[in-house]
Write a protein that binds this DNA or RNA. Structure first.
Lengths: 262, 262
DNA sequence: CGTAGATTTGATAGCAGTCAAACATCGTGG
DNA sequence: CCACGATGTTTGACTGCTATCAAATCTACG
Protein backbone atom coordinates (compact mmCIF):
# COMPACT_ATOMS: atom_id res chain seq x y z
CA UNK A 1 0.00 0.00 0.00
CA UNK A 2 2.98 2.29 0.17
CA UNK A 3 4.45 3.03 -3.23
CA UNK A 4 7.54 4.64 -1.88
CA UNK A 5 8.36 7.76 -3.80
CA UNK A 6 10.98 8.83 -1.39
CA UNK A 7 12.50 12.12 -2.57
CA UNK A 8 15.67 10.13 -3.02
CA UNK A 9 18.26 12.85 -2.73
CA UNK A 10 17.45 13.89 -6.24
CA UNK A 11 20.47 15.19 -8.07
CA UNK A 12 18.30 18.11 -8.96
CA UNK A 13 17.83 18.28 -12.66
CA UNK A 14 21.14 19.48 -13.92
CA UNK A 15 19.80 19.68 -17.38
CA UNK A 16 22.48 20.91 -19.71
CA UNK A 17 22.03 21.63 -23.37
CA UNK A 18 24.53 20.56 -25.95
CA UNK A 19 25.28 20.39 -29.63
CA UNK A 20 22.57 18.52 -31.45
CA UNK A 21 22.89 15.48 -33.67
CA UNK A 22 21.54 15.88 -37.17
CA UNK A 23 18.33 13.92 -37.67
CA UNK A 24 19.66 12.59 -40.93
CA UNK A 25 22.41 10.91 -38.97
CA UNK A 26 20.20 9.87 -36.09
CA UNK A 27 21.53 6.54 -34.81
CA UNK A 28 18.04 5.38 -33.89
CA UNK A 29 16.77 5.75 -37.41
CA UNK A 30 19.14 3.06 -38.61
CA UNK A 31 17.55 0.43 -36.43
CA UNK A 32 15.19 -1.79 -38.33
CA UNK A 33 12.50 -1.49 -35.70
CA UNK A 34 11.77 2.02 -36.92
CA UNK A 35 10.00 3.10 -40.07
CA UNK A 36 12.23 4.39 -42.84
CA UNK A 37 11.39 8.01 -43.62
CA UNK A 38 11.96 9.86 -46.87
CA UNK A 39 14.50 12.64 -46.76
CA UNK A 40 11.99 15.45 -46.91
CA UNK A 41 10.26 14.13 -43.81
CA UNK A 42 13.53 13.87 -41.96
CA UNK A 43 14.43 17.38 -43.02
CA UNK A 44 11.10 18.59 -41.76
CA UNK A 45 11.65 16.96 -38.39
CA UNK A 46 15.10 18.48 -38.34
CA UNK A 47 13.57 21.90 -38.90
CA UNK A 48 11.35 21.45 -35.88
CA UNK A 49 14.12 20.29 -33.58
CA UNK A 50 15.43 23.07 -31.38
CA UNK A 51 18.14 21.18 -29.56
CA UNK A 52 19.03 18.36 -27.28
CA UNK A 53 18.65 17.95 -23.58
CA UNK A 54 20.93 15.87 -21.42
CA UNK A 55 19.60 14.79 -18.09
CA UNK A 56 21.23 12.99 -15.19
CA UNK A 57 20.10 9.74 -13.67
CA UNK A 58 17.11 10.18 -11.42
CA UNK A 59 16.41 13.75 -12.49
CA UNK A 60 12.94 14.94 -13.38
CA UNK A 61 12.43 15.55 -17.06
CA UNK A 62 8.88 16.77 -16.65
CA UNK A 63 7.51 17.66 -13.22
CA UNK A 64 4.22 16.12 -12.22
CA UNK A 65 1.41 18.50 -13.01
CA UNK A 66 3.32 20.53 -15.56
CA UNK A 67 1.36 22.04 -18.40
CA UNK A 68 2.54 22.86 -21.85
CA UNK A 69 6.29 22.47 -21.98
CA UNK A 70 8.29 20.95 -24.77
CA UNK A 71 7.90 17.76 -26.71
CA UNK A 72 10.70 15.25 -26.66
CA UNK A 73 11.92 12.15 -28.36
CA UNK A 74 14.05 9.97 -26.16
CA UNK A 75 17.38 9.48 -27.92
CA UNK A 76 19.25 7.39 -25.40
CA UNK A 77 18.78 6.17 -21.86
CA UNK A 78 15.67 5.03 -20.00
CA UNK A 79 12.97 6.99 -18.17
CA UNK A 80 9.49 6.48 -16.80
CA UNK A 81 6.15 8.22 -16.52
CA UNK A 82 4.52 8.29 -13.09
CA UNK A 83 1.77 9.70 -10.92
CA UNK A 84 1.76 10.08 -7.16
CA UNK A 85 -0.84 10.47 -4.45
CA UNK A 86 -0.45 13.20 -1.90
CA UNK A 87 0.80 10.80 0.76
CA UNK A 88 3.64 9.64 -1.43
CA UNK A 89 2.25 6.47 -2.94
CA UNK A 90 3.65 6.30 -6.44
CA UNK A 91 2.49 4.51 -9.56
CA UNK A 92 4.77 4.14 -12.55
CA UNK A 93 2.62 4.29 -15.66
CA UNK A 94 5.15 2.94 -18.10
CA UNK A 95 8.79 2.89 -18.95
CA UNK A 96 10.27 4.97 -21.73
CA UNK A 97 13.00 3.68 -24.01
CA UNK A 98 14.87 5.25 -26.91
CA UNK A 99 12.55 6.28 -29.69
CA UNK A 100 9.64 7.00 -27.40
CA UNK A 101 7.80 10.26 -27.87
CA UNK A 102 7.25 12.29 -24.71
CA UNK A 103 4.94 15.11 -23.84
CA UNK A 104 1.76 14.47 -25.78
CA UNK A 105 -0.25 14.26 -22.59
CA UNK A 106 1.00 17.54 -21.18
CA UNK A 107 0.10 19.17 -24.46
CA UNK A 108 -3.45 18.01 -24.64
CA UNK A 109 -4.72 17.08 -21.25
CA UNK A 110 -6.22 19.75 -19.10
CA UNK A 111 -6.17 17.63 -16.00
CA UNK A 112 -3.16 17.38 -13.80
CA UNK A 113 -0.95 14.94 -15.58
CA UNK A 114 2.01 12.76 -14.81
CA UNK A 115 5.70 13.35 -14.29
CA UNK A 116 8.60 11.93 -16.24
CA UNK A 117 11.86 10.96 -14.59
CA UNK A 118 15.15 9.62 -15.88
CA UNK A 119 16.27 6.13 -14.93
CA UNK A 120 19.71 6.62 -16.39
CA UNK A 121 21.59 9.37 -18.10
CA UNK A 122 19.28 10.48 -20.83
CA UNK A 123 19.53 12.38 -24.06
CA UNK A 124 16.40 13.95 -25.47
CA UNK A 125 15.58 15.53 -28.76
CA UNK A 126 13.65 18.75 -28.05
CA UNK A 127 10.76 20.18 -30.03
CA UNK A 128 8.80 23.33 -29.23
CA UNK A 129 5.33 22.68 -28.00
CA UNK A 130 3.60 23.98 -31.07
CA UNK A 131 5.38 21.66 -33.45
CA UNK A 132 2.53 19.24 -32.87
CA UNK A 133 0.26 21.57 -34.72
CA UNK A 134 2.98 22.26 -37.24
CA UNK A 135 3.21 18.53 -37.93
CA UNK A 136 -0.51 18.17 -38.48
CA UNK A 137 -0.67 21.13 -40.78
CA UNK A 138 2.33 20.29 -42.88
CA UNK A 139 2.81 16.53 -42.91
CA UNK A 140 -0.43 14.57 -42.57
CA UNK A 141 1.39 11.28 -42.64
CA UNK A 142 3.62 12.36 -39.79
CA UNK A 143 0.55 13.42 -37.89
CA UNK A 144 -0.87 10.01 -38.56
CA UNK A 145 2.27 8.59 -37.01
CA UNK A 146 1.75 10.74 -33.93
CA UNK A 147 -1.70 9.25 -33.59
CA UNK A 148 -0.14 5.82 -33.97
CA UNK A 149 2.31 6.58 -31.19
CA UNK A 150 -0.43 7.81 -28.91
CA UNK A 151 -2.56 4.73 -29.54
CA UNK A 152 0.41 2.47 -29.06
CA UNK A 153 1.36 4.01 -25.76
CA UNK A 154 -2.19 3.62 -24.57
CA UNK A 155 -2.05 -0.05 -25.53
CA UNK A 156 0.97 -0.42 -23.27
CA UNK A 157 -0.85 1.14 -20.37
CA UNK A 158 -3.89 -1.04 -21.08
CA UNK A 159 -1.72 -4.10 -20.80
CA UNK A 160 -0.25 -2.90 -17.51
CA UNK A 161 -3.71 -2.19 -16.18
CA UNK A 162 -4.70 -5.76 -16.95
CA UNK A 163 -1.63 -6.93 -15.08
CA UNK A 164 -2.11 -4.78 -12.02
CA UNK A 165 -5.82 -5.43 -11.91
CA UNK A 166 -5.93 -9.14 -12.54
CA UNK A 167 -2.52 -10.82 -12.50
CA UNK A 168 -0.78 -11.98 -9.32
CA UNK A 169 2.70 -10.84 -8.37
CA UNK A 170 4.61 -13.52 -10.23
CA UNK A 171 2.56 -13.07 -13.39
CA UNK A 172 2.98 -9.31 -13.31
CA UNK A 173 6.71 -9.48 -12.90
CA UNK A 174 7.04 -12.13 -15.58
CA UNK A 175 5.24 -9.96 -18.09
CA UNK A 176 7.10 -6.80 -17.20
CA UNK A 177 10.48 -8.47 -17.61
CA UNK A 178 9.37 -10.03 -20.84
CA UNK A 179 8.11 -6.81 -22.38
CA UNK A 180 11.06 -4.74 -21.27
CA UNK A 181 13.43 -7.32 -22.63
CA UNK A 182 11.58 -7.37 -25.93
CA UNK A 183 11.63 -3.62 -26.23
CA UNK A 184 15.28 -3.33 -25.34
CA UNK A 185 16.19 -6.15 -27.68
CA UNK A 186 14.38 -4.61 -30.61
CA UNK A 187 16.52 -1.53 -30.04
CA UNK A 188 19.54 -3.79 -30.25
CA UNK A 189 20.62 -2.93 -26.75
CA UNK A 190 21.36 -6.56 -26.00
CA UNK A 191 24.83 -8.04 -26.02
CA UNK A 192 25.74 -11.32 -27.71
CA UNK A 193 24.43 -13.33 -24.75
CA UNK A 194 21.05 -11.64 -25.02
CA UNK A 195 21.42 -9.56 -21.87
CA UNK A 196 19.98 -6.06 -22.11
CA UNK A 197 20.66 -2.99 -19.95
CA UNK A 198 18.37 -2.85 -16.95
CA UNK A 199 18.71 0.44 -15.06
CA UNK A 200 15.71 -0.38 -12.91
CA UNK A 201 15.62 -1.05 -9.17
CA UNK A 202 13.22 -3.38 -7.44
CA UNK A 203 11.48 -0.30 -6.09
CA UNK A 204 10.73 0.75 -9.65
CA UNK A 205 9.34 -2.67 -10.46
CA UNK A 206 7.18 -2.53 -7.36
CA UNK A 207 5.90 0.93 -8.24
CA UNK A 208 5.17 -0.12 -11.81
CA UNK A 209 3.22 -3.19 -10.78
CA UNK A 210 1.35 -1.97 -7.73
CA UNK A 211 3.34 -4.20 -5.39
CA UNK A 212 5.33 -3.57 -2.24
CA UNK A 213 9.10 -3.57 -2.39
CA UNK A 214 9.39 -6.57 -0.10
CA UNK A 215 6.93 -8.71 -1.97
CA UNK A 216 8.53 -7.76 -5.24
CA UNK A 217 11.88 -8.90 -3.95
CA UNK A 218 10.59 -12.22 -2.72
CA UNK A 219 8.76 -12.93 -5.95
CA UNK A 220 11.73 -11.91 -8.04
CA UNK A 221 13.88 -14.20 -5.94
CA UNK A 222 11.56 -17.10 -6.53
CA UNK A 223 11.43 -16.51 -10.28
CA UNK A 224 15.18 -16.35 -10.53
CA UNK A 225 15.49 -19.58 -8.56
CA UNK A 226 13.30 -21.21 -11.20
CA UNK A 227 15.68 -19.98 -13.86
CA UNK A 228 13.19 -17.60 -15.42
CA UNK A 229 15.40 -14.57 -15.36
CA UNK A 230 18.72 -13.23 -14.25
CA UNK A 231 19.65 -9.69 -13.31
CA UNK A 232 23.31 -8.98 -12.75
CA UNK A 233 25.40 -5.89 -13.09
CA UNK A 234 22.53 -3.79 -14.33
CA UNK A 235 21.69 -6.22 -17.12
CA UNK A 236 18.74 -8.50 -17.61
CA UNK A 237 18.75 -11.82 -19.38
CA UNK A 238 15.90 -14.21 -19.94
CA UNK A 239 16.99 -17.82 -20.33
CA UNK A 240 13.46 -18.99 -20.99
CA UNK A 241 11.18 -16.33 -22.48
CA UNK A 242 8.56 -18.90 -23.45
CA UNK A 243 8.13 -19.95 -19.83
CA UNK A 244 7.71 -16.33 -18.80
CA UNK A 245 5.14 -15.74 -21.54
CA UNK A 246 3.24 -18.79 -20.48
CA UNK A 247 3.32 -17.81 -16.83
CA UNK A 248 2.06 -14.35 -17.69
CA UNK A 249 -0.58 -15.73 -20.03
CA UNK A 250 0.75 -13.46 -22.72
CA UNK A 251 0.45 -14.46 -26.31
CA UNK A 252 1.55 -11.33 -28.10
CA UNK A 253 2.67 -11.46 -31.66
CA UNK A 254 6.26 -12.39 -32.21
CA UNK A 255 6.64 -10.84 -35.63
CA UNK A 256 8.46 -7.59 -35.07
CA UNK A 257 6.81 -4.67 -36.73
CA UNK A 258 8.30 -1.29 -37.39
CA UNK A 259 7.05 1.83 -35.73
CA UNK A 260 7.26 5.57 -36.31
CA UNK A 261 10.16 7.64 -35.04
CA UNK A 262 9.73 11.37 -34.84
CA UNK B 1 -8.33 -12.93 -8.30
CA UNK B 2 -11.27 -13.92 -10.38
CA UNK B 3 -12.49 -11.14 -12.62
CA UNK B 4 -15.58 -12.93 -13.65
CA UNK B 5 -16.22 -12.56 -17.33
CA UNK B 6 -18.90 -15.13 -17.34
CA UNK B 7 -20.29 -15.39 -20.85
CA UNK B 8 -23.52 -14.13 -19.37
CA UNK B 9 -26.04 -15.41 -21.82
CA UNK B 10 -25.01 -12.77 -24.28
CA UNK B 11 -27.88 -11.69 -26.42
CA UNK B 12 -25.60 -12.34 -29.30
CA UNK B 13 -24.91 -9.11 -31.09
CA UNK B 14 -28.12 -8.42 -32.80
CA UNK B 15 -26.64 -5.45 -34.49
CA UNK B 16 -29.17 -3.84 -36.74
CA UNK B 17 -28.50 -0.89 -38.98
CA UNK B 18 -30.95 1.97 -39.31
CA UNK B 19 -31.51 5.36 -40.81
CA UNK B 20 -28.76 7.75 -39.80
CA UNK B 21 -29.09 11.09 -38.07
CA UNK B 22 -27.56 14.01 -39.89
CA UNK B 23 -24.40 15.23 -38.21
CA UNK B 24 -25.61 18.80 -38.53
CA UNK B 25 -28.50 17.85 -36.30
CA UNK B 26 -26.46 15.68 -33.96
CA UNK B 27 -27.94 16.08 -30.49
CA UNK B 28 -24.53 15.66 -28.88
CA UNK B 29 -23.08 18.60 -30.72
CA UNK B 30 -25.47 20.94 -28.96
CA UNK B 31 -24.07 20.12 -25.56
CA UNK B 32 -21.68 22.74 -24.30
CA UNK B 33 -19.10 20.16 -23.28
CA UNK B 34 -18.22 19.67 -26.93
CA UNK B 35 -16.28 21.97 -29.21
CA UNK B 36 -18.32 23.93 -31.70
CA UNK B 37 -17.35 22.99 -35.23
CA UNK B 38 -17.71 25.09 -38.35
CA UNK B 39 -20.19 23.83 -40.93
CA UNK B 40 -17.58 22.65 -43.39
CA UNK B 41 -16.06 20.42 -40.77
CA UNK B 42 -19.40 18.96 -39.85
CA UNK B 43 -20.16 18.39 -43.52
CA UNK B 44 -16.85 16.63 -43.88
CA UNK B 45 -17.61 14.36 -40.94
CA UNK B 46 -21.02 13.72 -42.44
CA UNK B 47 -19.36 12.68 -45.70
CA UNK B 48 -17.30 10.09 -43.84
CA UNK B 49 -20.20 8.64 -41.93
CA UNK B 50 -21.53 5.47 -43.47
CA UNK B 51 -24.37 4.77 -41.11
CA UNK B 52 -25.46 3.99 -37.63
CA UNK B 53 -25.23 0.85 -35.59
CA UNK B 54 -27.69 -0.09 -32.88
CA UNK B 55 -26.52 -2.63 -30.38
CA UNK B 56 -28.33 -4.38 -27.56
CA UNK B 57 -27.40 -4.35 -23.94
CA UNK B 58 -24.48 -6.62 -23.20
CA UNK B 59 -23.64 -7.28 -26.83
CA UNK B 60 -20.10 -7.09 -28.13
CA UNK B 61 -19.40 -4.09 -30.29
CA UNK B 62 -15.84 -5.08 -31.02
CA UNK B 63 -14.61 -8.60 -30.23
CA UNK B 64 -11.41 -8.89 -28.24
CA UNK B 65 -8.49 -9.32 -30.60
CA UNK B 66 -10.23 -7.91 -33.64
CA UNK B 67 -8.08 -6.10 -36.15
CA UNK B 68 -9.10 -3.34 -38.47
CA UNK B 69 -12.84 -2.94 -38.34
CA UNK B 70 -14.76 0.28 -38.32
CA UNK B 71 -14.37 3.44 -36.32
CA UNK B 72 -17.24 4.59 -34.17
CA UNK B 73 -18.48 7.52 -32.22
CA UNK B 74 -20.77 6.59 -29.37
CA UNK B 75 -24.03 8.47 -29.87
CA UNK B 76 -26.06 7.20 -26.98
CA UNK B 77 -25.78 4.58 -24.29
CA UNK B 78 -22.81 3.31 -22.32
CA UNK B 79 -20.14 0.73 -23.12
CA UNK B 80 -16.74 -0.36 -21.90
CA UNK B 81 -13.37 -1.50 -23.18
CA UNK B 82 -11.90 -4.64 -21.65
CA UNK B 83 -9.22 -7.29 -21.82
CA UNK B 84 -9.36 -10.82 -20.50
CA UNK B 85 -6.88 -13.50 -19.54
CA UNK B 86 -7.31 -16.99 -20.89
CA UNK B 87 -8.74 -18.28 -17.61
CA UNK B 88 -11.50 -15.70 -17.70
CA UNK B 89 -10.17 -13.00 -15.44
CA UNK B 90 -11.42 -9.75 -16.90
CA UNK B 91 -10.15 -6.19 -16.60
CA UNK B 92 -12.31 -3.28 -17.71
CA UNK B 93 -9.99 -0.62 -19.11
CA UNK B 94 -12.45 2.23 -19.10
CA UNK B 95 -16.06 3.12 -19.61
CA UNK B 96 -17.34 4.72 -22.77
CA UNK B 97 -19.99 7.42 -22.76
CA UNK B 98 -21.68 9.36 -25.53
CA UNK B 99 -19.22 11.34 -27.58
CA UNK B 100 -16.38 8.89 -27.07
CA UNK B 101 -14.44 7.82 -30.11
CA UNK B 102 -13.98 4.06 -30.49
CA UNK B 103 -11.62 1.96 -32.52
CA UNK B 104 -8.39 3.90 -32.68
CA UNK B 105 -6.51 1.08 -30.99
CA UNK B 106 -7.73 -1.60 -33.36
CA UNK B 107 -6.68 0.57 -36.22
CA UNK B 108 -3.14 1.19 -35.10
CA UNK B 109 -2.06 -1.48 -32.73
CA UNK B 110 -0.56 -4.63 -34.12
CA UNK B 111 -0.79 -6.46 -30.82
CA UNK B 112 -3.90 -8.22 -29.75
CA UNK B 113 -6.13 -5.50 -28.46
CA UNK B 114 -9.18 -5.14 -26.30
CA UNK B 115 -12.86 -5.77 -26.77
CA UNK B 116 -15.73 -3.32 -26.50
CA UNK B 117 -19.07 -4.29 -25.05
CA UNK B 118 -22.35 -2.43 -24.57
CA UNK B 119 -23.63 -1.70 -21.07
CA UNK B 120 -26.98 -0.52 -22.32
CA UNK B 121 -28.67 -0.16 -25.62
CA UNK B 122 -26.21 1.74 -27.72
CA UNK B 123 -26.25 3.80 -30.87
CA UNK B 124 -23.03 4.26 -32.74
CA UNK B 125 -22.01 6.49 -35.58
CA UNK B 126 -20.04 4.37 -38.04
CA UNK B 127 -17.00 5.41 -40.09
CA UNK B 128 -15.03 3.22 -42.45
CA UNK B 129 -11.64 2.31 -41.15
CA UNK B 130 -9.72 4.43 -43.60
CA UNK B 131 -11.45 7.65 -42.65
CA UNK B 132 -8.70 8.11 -40.12
CA UNK B 133 -6.28 8.69 -42.92
CA UNK B 134 -8.87 10.71 -44.76
CA UNK B 135 -9.16 13.00 -41.77
CA UNK B 136 -5.45 13.52 -41.51
CA UNK B 137 -5.08 14.26 -45.18
CA UNK B 138 -8.02 16.60 -45.48
CA UNK B 139 -8.59 18.32 -42.17
CA UNK B 140 -5.43 18.80 -40.11
CA UNK B 141 -7.33 20.39 -37.28
CA UNK B 142 -9.67 17.42 -37.08
CA UNK B 143 -6.64 15.15 -37.06
CA UNK B 144 -5.31 17.23 -34.23
CA UNK B 145 -8.53 16.55 -32.41
CA UNK B 146 -8.10 12.83 -32.95
CA UNK B 147 -4.73 13.09 -31.30
CA UNK B 148 -6.35 15.00 -28.48
CA UNK B 149 -8.91 12.26 -28.02
CA UNK B 150 -6.24 9.59 -27.99
CA UNK B 151 -4.18 11.45 -25.43
CA UNK B 152 -7.24 12.13 -23.32
CA UNK B 153 -8.30 8.51 -23.28
CA UNK B 154 -4.83 7.51 -22.24
CA UNK B 155 -5.02 10.01 -19.39
CA UNK B 156 -8.16 8.24 -18.19
CA UNK B 157 -6.43 4.89 -18.22
CA UNK B 158 -3.43 6.40 -16.45
CA UNK B 159 -5.69 7.58 -13.68
CA UNK B 160 -7.26 4.15 -13.35
CA UNK B 161 -3.85 2.53 -13.25
CA UNK B 162 -2.94 4.79 -10.35
CA UNK B 163 -6.12 3.70 -8.62
CA UNK B 164 -5.71 0.00 -9.17
CA UNK B 165 -2.03 0.08 -8.37
CA UNK B 166 -2.01 2.30 -5.32
CA UNK B 167 -5.46 3.08 -3.95
CA UNK B 168 -7.39 0.79 -1.60
CA UNK B 169 -10.85 -0.46 -2.37
CA UNK B 170 -12.76 2.46 -0.86
CA UNK B 171 -10.57 5.03 -2.56
CA UNK B 172 -10.86 3.30 -5.91
CA UNK B 173 -14.62 3.13 -5.76
CA UNK B 174 -14.90 6.71 -4.58
CA UNK B 175 -12.91 7.95 -7.54
CA UNK B 176 -14.73 5.80 -10.07
CA UNK B 177 -18.13 7.00 -8.93
CA UNK B 178 -16.93 10.57 -8.89
CA UNK B 179 -15.49 10.49 -12.40
CA UNK B 180 -18.44 8.66 -13.91
CA UNK B 181 -20.83 11.09 -12.31
CA UNK B 182 -18.83 14.01 -13.64
CA UNK B 183 -18.74 12.62 -17.14
CA UNK B 184 -22.42 11.80 -17.18
CA UNK B 185 -23.30 15.17 -15.72
CA UNK B 186 -21.30 17.06 -18.32
CA UNK B 187 -23.38 15.23 -20.91
CA UNK B 188 -26.46 16.52 -19.14
CA UNK B 189 -27.67 13.04 -18.40
CA UNK B 190 -28.54 14.00 -14.86
CA UNK B 191 -32.06 14.78 -13.70
CA UNK B 192 -32.97 17.77 -11.54
CA UNK B 193 -31.85 15.98 -8.38
CA UNK B 194 -28.42 15.37 -9.85
CA UNK B 195 -28.88 11.65 -10.33
CA UNK B 196 -27.34 10.26 -13.49
CA UNK B 197 -28.03 6.99 -15.32
CA UNK B 198 -25.87 4.18 -14.04
CA UNK B 199 -26.21 1.03 -16.15
CA UNK B 200 -23.34 -0.64 -14.33
CA UNK B 201 -23.46 -3.68 -12.08
CA UNK B 202 -21.20 -4.28 -9.12
CA UNK B 203 -19.45 -6.91 -11.19
CA UNK B 204 -18.49 -4.20 -13.66
CA UNK B 205 -17.17 -2.00 -10.90
CA UNK B 206 -15.15 -4.92 -9.56
CA UNK B 207 -13.73 -5.69 -12.98
CA UNK B 208 -12.86 -2.06 -13.58
CA UNK B 209 -11.04 -1.66 -10.29
CA UNK B 210 -9.29 -4.99 -9.95
CA UNK B 211 -11.44 -6.06 -7.01
CA UNK B 212 -13.58 -9.10 -6.28
CA UNK B 213 -17.33 -8.85 -6.51
CA UNK B 214 -17.84 -9.56 -2.84
CA UNK B 215 -15.34 -7.01 -1.63
CA UNK B 216 -16.75 -4.45 -4.01
CA UNK B 217 -20.19 -5.00 -2.58
CA UNK B 218 -19.06 -4.67 1.01
CA UNK B 219 -17.10 -1.53 0.32
CA UNK B 220 -19.95 -0.02 -1.67
CA UNK B 221 -22.24 -0.82 1.21
CA UNK B 222 -19.97 0.94 3.67
CA UNK B 223 -19.65 4.02 1.47
CA UNK B 224 -23.38 4.29 1.04
CA UNK B 225 -23.87 3.96 4.80
CA UNK B 226 -21.61 6.99 5.19
CA UNK B 227 -23.82 8.89 2.81
CA UNK B 228 -21.19 9.17 0.10
CA UNK B 229 -23.31 7.84 -2.68
CA UNK B 230 -26.63 6.36 -3.55
CA UNK B 231 -27.51 3.96 -6.35
CA UNK B 232 -31.19 3.25 -6.92
CA UNK B 233 -33.14 2.23 -9.93
CA UNK B 234 -30.19 2.36 -12.23
CA UNK B 235 -29.29 5.90 -11.24
CA UNK B 236 -26.37 7.26 -9.27
CA UNK B 237 -26.40 10.33 -7.08
CA UNK B 238 -23.58 11.80 -5.06
CA UNK B 239 -24.79 13.77 -2.05
CA UNK B 240 -21.26 14.78 -1.13
CA UNK B 241 -18.82 14.89 -4.06
CA UNK B 242 -16.24 16.81 -2.05
CA UNK B 243 -16.01 14.02 0.50
CA UNK B 244 -15.53 11.48 -2.27
CA UNK B 245 -12.83 13.60 -3.87
CA UNK B 246 -11.06 13.95 -0.59
CA UNK B 247 -11.28 10.23 0.13
CA UNK B 248 -9.90 9.43 -3.29
CA UNK B 249 -7.18 12.06 -2.96
CA UNK B 250 -8.31 13.50 -6.24
CA UNK B 251 -7.85 17.16 -6.93
CA UNK B 252 -8.76 17.41 -10.58
CA UNK B 253 -9.73 20.68 -12.11
CA UNK B 254 -13.32 21.67 -11.68
CA UNK B 255 -13.48 24.06 -14.61
CA UNK B 256 -15.25 22.18 -17.35
CA UNK B 257 -13.46 22.33 -20.62
CA UNK B 258 -14.81 21.47 -24.01
CA UNK B 259 -13.57 18.56 -26.02
CA UNK B 260 -13.65 17.42 -29.63
CA UNK B 261 -16.54 15.45 -31.05
CA UNK B 262 -16.00 13.59 -34.28
C1' DC C 1 -44.99 -17.62 -10.10
C1' DG C 2 -40.72 -19.37 -11.39
C1' DT C 3 -36.17 -18.38 -12.83
C1' DA C 4 -31.93 -15.94 -14.00
C1' DG C 5 -29.20 -12.26 -12.71
C1' DA C 6 -27.81 -9.00 -9.16
C1' DT C 7 -27.10 -7.81 -4.40
C1' DT C 8 -25.91 -9.05 0.43
C1' DT C 9 -23.88 -11.34 4.28
C1' DG C 10 -21.11 -14.43 7.04
C1' DA C 11 -17.12 -17.41 7.46
C1' DT C 12 -12.54 -18.60 6.22
C1' DA C 13 -8.17 -18.38 3.75
C1' DG C 14 -4.25 -16.43 1.51
C1' DC C 15 -1.67 -13.18 -1.14
C1' DA C 16 0.58 -9.24 -0.42
C1' DG C 17 1.60 -5.30 2.87
C1' DT C 18 4.15 -3.60 6.83
C1' DC C 19 7.84 -3.65 10.17
C1' DA C 20 12.54 -4.47 11.36
C1' DA C 21 17.00 -5.54 10.50
C1' DA C 22 20.84 -7.72 8.29
C1' DC C 23 23.62 -7.77 4.25
C1' DA C 24 25.59 -6.26 -0.17
C1' DT C 25 27.47 -2.65 -3.33
C1' DC C 26 29.67 1.19 -4.57
C1' DG C 27 31.64 5.70 -4.66
C1' DT C 28 34.11 8.84 -1.59
C1' DG C 29 37.36 10.49 1.56
C1' DG C 30 40.80 9.87 5.16
C1' DC D 1 43.47 0.47 1.32
C1' DC D 2 39.92 0.55 4.38
C1' DA D 3 36.31 3.06 6.98
C1' DC D 4 31.85 5.20 6.04
C1' DG D 5 27.51 6.48 4.33
C1' DA D 6 23.98 6.03 0.94
C1' DT D 7 21.33 3.14 -1.81
C1' DG D 8 19.65 -1.17 -2.98
C1' DT D 9 18.78 -6.19 -1.89
C1' DT D 10 17.31 -9.98 1.25
C1' DT D 11 15.03 -12.30 5.01
C1' DG D 12 12.03 -13.34 8.78
C1' DA D 13 7.96 -12.38 11.54
C1' DC D 14 3.52 -10.73 11.77
C1' DT D 15 -0.62 -8.33 10.06
C1' DG D 16 -4.43 -7.33 7.23
C1' DC D 17 -6.79 -6.22 3.09
C1' DT D 18 -9.01 -8.58 -0.22
C1' DA D 19 -10.17 -13.08 -2.36
C1' DT D 20 -12.84 -17.17 -2.15
C1' DC D 21 -16.67 -20.08 -0.77
C1' DA D 22 -21.45 -20.65 0.33
C1' DA D 23 -25.87 -19.30 0.64
C1' DA D 24 -29.63 -16.26 1.48
C1' DT D 25 -32.28 -12.57 -0.32
C1' DC D 26 -33.95 -9.31 -3.75
C1' DT D 27 -35.55 -7.84 -8.51
C1' DA D 28 -37.02 -7.97 -12.87
C1' DC D 29 -39.72 -10.14 -16.08
C1' DG D 30 -41.64 -13.70 -19.33
Amino acid sequence: MKGAAKPSARKNGEQRAQAAVACARCPLRRLDCFDAYANDRIDFIQSLKIGELHVDTDAEIIPEGAHGGHLYTLLSGWAFRFKTLSDGRRQILNFLLPGDFIGLQQKMSADATHGVRALSEVRLCVFPRDSLWEIHRTYPDLAYDVTWLAAHEEALVDETLLSVGRRNAAERIALLLLLLHQRASSLQLGDDSGAVPFPITQQHIADALGLSLVHTNKTLRRLEATGLHRIRGGRLSLPNPAALASLADHYGRTATITRPLI
